[in-house]
Design a binder for these strands. Structure first.
Lengths: 343, 343
DNA sequence: TTGAAAGCGTTACCAG
DNA sequence: CTGGTAACGCTTTCAA
């Protein structure tokens, strides 16, 4: 029950040495004679001593932990993000604290509170207010993940807009479609905002008029089903539904199939992310692959660097490339070799 | 960048009072004259002082944090679990640390390491070894979530076996099916193990011989698609597929539909959890609703209690009830009023 | 190579 | 009601 009560002092007494020596042995720092080291290790072993994290952190002035702030975690995207983040944090001996703001009223406060428990924080774009972000940056190294913050704050994101323009152009030009709908809430996150912009851009390049409004829903499968309900009633149904991510796309697919529509014959559907299910649904999903793990790993690296040497903190803005993945749901006959996202 | 450097001492000096008074004001403990309080609050406000978490935790001997250990997080089940856990932890002013072991080799060590940073830990059943669990219990209050540990360790779970027996009986008796397949890995988690046992129990109650082996896959949608591939080839396809959770079931559904099968006419499919998508797919999924949030909330409550008063620690074993939800995928004509899980 | 002692930032006890 | 001071567990100078 109670926390293990063995302290340095205790071990020092038992081994007949000073606390300084115990500290040196347990950390492997400094020079200790073989004889002393043996005695200390023996005592440590016997009593199962493990240095208390609080004392250590207090003395070192560091927490040995990194924070990761989500709006809420669900779906394969966040799973990947966490794994990528951990892939850098764990080797650096930093534990990862996850905070889900869940759109709570006090999310700004919660993040500020977290800032006092960690050495640096990655915030998913659109999760907290810009002012909170700036205050945060005065307390610990911060990087915006999948979005962009103020200039003073580092960020890591992908080339959402051009990728979505590329995909939309494929529908408009290669498939000759005209009536497309965009599903996703641009106000919900920078990612979606940029994808919506990229979607419109494709129309404008062709001197066509893009839809005035997106279908605003959240980013999970049920939201896609909801969007399908809204879109597929009456004679106003679009020819294609361009979704802000794969989860929504799968939801739309389920909704369309449930209404007896044939995809892609009656309705074209596209996604974004290239989640594991994208290749497994029928028809397989045309989408954009983004390097989610790399994104998070890069963010973790930046934070660790900044935390190690706060004075050398140079705000960086990194944009990672994506890859257009053509499959069946857009109407293409079969999976074709993938190409870059460039024009 | 660097952590904010305002300390109690600083504020005390600026306000012309002692550190004790500053502490009293910032914590609202003890009696402080209006005059002093004003002066202190002014200084705190002006310099943006926020008591350092480490110092506070060290002095209090508590971390103000709870740990949650997952095998890996993905899918709506874990999302709900986290929210339920937070719903109790946050009001108690405890932050939540999440650890995903990802089947790593050193997961036992990682959990032990976490034990030194939190006041209590909830471990999802089947995540770490029993011996690690026992060692853990000597360090902090521990509760097993969705599973059962040694008698000395508290646990919270649901009535998996009877619920699955009820569902299977429905297929066997009400629908007269005989050739059922179970999809899920009983070795992967206590939940699945119990569901597999409950599945077999239904056969035995009717003096029928249950399948000898389940289709062993993980718990996500792609795994369901994989299971469908294995099951739906050749003439050996079962009449019904009983899945360990809804995610698998949706995967199987996608796989079956993709092969041109009609559900439930050609193949019956059932799930477990009653995830949001269960009611939205076509056909809607017959499943078992489990109180995931309550489960996690109860675990958090137990840990908080035990942490508050370690001596009063009484290991509890709580089993929450579930609810059988009949929808379309089992072959029933329409959604019927739900009933309890009892016999 | 070793030990004594000074912090790290906070809270809480005990006199005044 | 207020201030001094001793913890809390650890690391790290600074002397010896």
């Amino acid at each position: 029950m109670g926390n293990s009560r063995v302290t340095v002092r205790e071990i020092a007494r038992l081994a007949g040495v000073s606390v300084a020596t115990v500290s040196r042995v347990s950390n492997g720092t400094g020079q200790v004679s073989e004889e002393m080291r043996r005695r200390v290790l023996e005592a440590i072993e016997e009593h199962g001593y493990r240095p208390d994290h609080l004392g250590r952190a207090l003395a070192a002035g560091r927490h040995g932990a990194l924070g990761l702030v989500f709006p809420g975690l669900s779906g394969p995207y966040f799973t990947e993000l966490i794994q990528g983040f951990e892939s850098e944090a764990v080797p650096a001996r930093a534990s990862v604290h996850i905070l889900c703001t869940h759109l709570r009223e006090d999310s700004d406060d919660q993040v500020l509170e977290m800032a006092r428990r960690v050495d640096g924080i990655a915030v998913i774009g659109g999760t907290i207010s810009e002012s909170a972000l700036l205050r945060l940056a005065t307390m610990v190294p911060v990087v915006v993940l999948a979005g962009r913050g103020p200039d003073a704050v580092s960020s890591v994101s992908v080339d959402n807009a051009p990728a979505m323009t590329r995909l939309t152009r494929h529908l408009l030009v290669d498939h000759g479609l005209r009536h497309l709908a965009f599903v996703g809430n641009p106000d919900g996150s920078p990612d979606v905002s940029e994808r919506w912009a990229g979607f419109r851009e494709a129309y404008q390049e062709l001197d066509l008029t893009p839809p005035a409004e997106p279908v605003r829903v959240a980013m999970q499968q049920p939201d896609g089903v909801l969007a399908a309900e809204r879109l597929l009633v009456g004679r106003t149904a679009p020819q294609a539904v361009v979704c802000a991510n794969d989860e929504i796309a799968i939801g739309v697919l389920v909704g369309a199939l449930g209404r007896g529509l044939r995809v892609p014959d009656d309705l074209v559907i596209t996604g974004f992310d290239d989640a594991p299910m994208a290749a497994l649904v029928s028809p397989s999903l045309t989408t954009v692959r983004q390097p989610i793990r790399d994104l998070a790993a890069e963010a973790a690296r930046q934070i660790l660097n900044a935390a190690a040497d706060p004075r050398a903190a140079t705000p960086e803005t990194i944009v990672l490339p994506t890859e257009f993945v053509v499959r069946r749901s857009c109407g293409c006959p079969a999976e074709s070799p993938t190409g870059g996202t460039g024009k």
